[in-house]
Amino acid sequence: MMVLEIIEYIIRLILSPPIFAPIIYPGLVTVLVILLSIIWVERKIAAKVQLRYGPLYVSKPIGGALQMLADATRFFFQEIIVPRDADSIAFLIAPAASLVLPLLPIVFVPAAPSFVAISVEYSLPLVLAISALTPIVIIVMAWAANNKFTIIGGIREAFMVIAYELSLFISALAMAIFYGTLNLEDIVSMQKSLPGVILNPLAAITFFVAMVMATSRLPFDIVEGEQEIVAGPFTEYTGILYGLVMGAGYVQLYILCLVFVELFLSGWYPYIGLLGEIYPALGGVSLFIKAYLLMVFIVFLRSVYGRYRLDQAISIGWKSLLPLSLASVFLSLGLLAAGVVI
């Protein structure tokens, strides 16, 4: 009897949102599945566009879908090399921090109505604030490796941050101004009938482009610039450390896609009540599907766009995105003044 009670208690504990959300959905386990699948999807799409097969060698019957799992396993067994001139402590700690920091905001991102690890009134600025810390780790990484390619990559990262950060925040705040709340859950609940993207498309476009810049996806993968600076700040990393830094970018992409869907695409609506009765997080599966499709669209950009130069990207950030984000704030204020009520 005692054992059964303990098991029941443990199951209840695991299923409680403060544990389930950060560890299983939308947290760690989901992130792992996404990492393994989205890289495969990205490579497959790029291959289709370039009339190739893409990854096929591992698990041929299912289109090479397990290739990423094989790659991850390989990373585990590869030697970790710390360059002689590198600052070894920062060099080793930074990759772990680069994966943990983008993952932290997940505790403030609701996955379904009242389903969030830590419920706070100011979840939107908190998520954006913690996401804003990742570039620091990338700069530290570049400094620690002490190599000309990493330093150039680090400086590029810093320039990019200055170019997109302001627009990302302002466009998100434009939606907060319109909905009158900084709570992501409240923002989603107000989009039940009309998604934010229809009300304020300017904010959506700005946030989207800034998000692509923030996650260093093409056409803004200037920080890594494979053909120019090897792998930018990640050049000296090998083995599992490289696996971590490579995964960090996708984790940040996932978190920002969740925020985009919650700000502009009605979040977990249409809510599937039937699944919600089984477990609350399941009802909000639309949020995950939309975020995943958005990720697929963003990784698809790799196949159709060339890379911008750094000066072009900065120019886009300051001359196009910033005015657009400010315009989105005025649009929100205009909608409020016009008495548009959700």
Binding site: A129, A132, A142, I155
Partner: peptide, 26 residues
């Protein structure tokens, strides 16, 4: 004061430390 805390992270950690590390790197 969660609101103040969030902006403290953005400004004093996000922006300020980024600028310091950026300057050191440059």
């Amino acid at each position: 004061y969660g609101y103040v805390a969030a902006f403290h992270v953005v400004i004093y950690v996000g922006a300020a430390v980024t600028f310091v590390t950026f300057s050191v790197l440059m």
